[in-house]
Simulated scan of single mutants.
Amino acid sequence: MTTATMQEASEYVDFWNRVLVPKFIRFRHILAEGTSNHSDQVLPTLGLEEGDRVVDIGCGFGDTAIELARRVGWSGAVLGIDCCDAFLDFGRREAAAAGISNLTFVEADVLTHRFEPVHDACFSRFGTQFFENPVAGLRNMRAALKPGGTMTMIVWRALEDNPCMNLPKQVILRFLPAPEDDADTCGPGPFSMADQSVVRRQLEAAGFEAIAFERVDAPVVMGKSLDDAVDFQLAIGPAGEIYREAGTIAEQRHEDIVAALKRELAPFERPEGIVMSSGSWKVTARNPR
C-alpha cells in the first residue's frame, strides 16, 4: 500500500482536517457503525467480479475500501481516496493487520486528483455530498472509469427522512440561532444530494448515463448511552454545526441543551444504545461506452 501527498487544499478540505477530523476520530464508533448499515445493503449489489479494479471516493476510515478489496480478490485492486490522511491511517493499519495487499490509500482532493481511466467501478459512501463543485467532482469520478464502468454512491435523503439528525437539530434550535451564511463549513453539506432531480442533472452534466435511485433505510446507533449520544450530537452533524457556530451562547445554554437532548433521545434507548432511523439514496450511473 502506498500513499500520495495531496497537493493543494481548498478551504473545505482545510476545515475537514482542522475541525472535523478530531471529532470524527473521537466518534468513530458511532459513524462507522451507522454508515455501514447503509453500505452493507449496497456493497453486495455492485456486481463486482474477481479481478475488478475499483476506486472508493471519500473512503474515510477505509472500512468500505477493505471490503471492496476482499470482494475483487487478489487479482483485483482497490484505490481508496480521501482528503484526510488521519482517516486513511486507520485503513492502512487495518488492511495491513488483515493481510490485504491489493488496496492503496491516497490522500487527495477528488476534484483535482488525476485518475487513470482503468477502473471497472467507482463507489462512494456519504462522500460526494461534500464536493465543493458537485459536477466537477462527479466528472472526475467518471474520468476514473473505463468505458461502460459503473458509479454507485450512497447519499443521505432529506433531513426529514433522517430523524437521527433532524430531531437533535430541532431541539438545539429551541436554544440557539441558526448558523450565519458565512459560517465555516465542510462543503455543501450532508443533505446536498437529497433531491433526485438535482442529482440527476448533476450526473448528466458530468457525462453519466443510466442514472437510477433506490431508497435505503437503516437503523443507526447514535451513541452507546444517552451521554454518548448527546456528546456526539453536540460535536457532529446539523446539531453540532449549530452548537459550534453559536460559540459563547452555546456555552451559556449548555446545561439546558443537554437536558433537552436527553429528554428527546431517551425514548430511543435500547440495550445496544440510542437507536434511531435513517434514510439514504443508492444512486447508480454508467460511464458511456
Rank of each mutant, 00 (worst) to 15 (best):
D161P: 05
D109C: 05
A77G: 14
L68A: 04
F90A: 06
R244A: 12
R200P: 01
M165Y: 13
A178V: 04
R142G: 09
V118Y: 00
A235W: 02
D40R: 13
G189Y: 00
V42N: 04
F87Q: 04
R289Q: 12
V110E: 05
V230E: 07
F123K: 02
A9M: 11
G99V: 12
A97H: 11
L261R: 08
F126S: 02
M193Y: 04
A108K: 00
T5K: 11
E116T: 12
D195T: 14
K146C: 10
R53D: 15
V198I: 14
E209R: 15
G237Q: 02
A69P: 02
V220C: 03
K282V: 12
K262L: 05
P267A: 06
A205D: 15
A206D: 09
G62I: 00
V135D: 11
L203I: 09
A259N: 14
P190H: 07
C122E: 11
D56K: 00
V221A: 03
A246K: 01
L46V: 10
D89G: 09
E180P: 13
F130D: 01
R93E: 11
E132F: 12
E241K: 14
Q129H: 14
A32L: 10
T152F: 05
M6Q: 07
A260Y: 00
K146L: 11
D56A: 03
P267R: 10
F232S: 00
I242P: 01
A239C: 02
G99N: 13
V54E: 13
A194F: 03
F123I: 10
A108P: 00
V230T: 05
I154A: 02
V283M: 09
T3G: 09
K282D: 05
Q129C: 12
L203S: 13
L20D: 09
F24R: 06
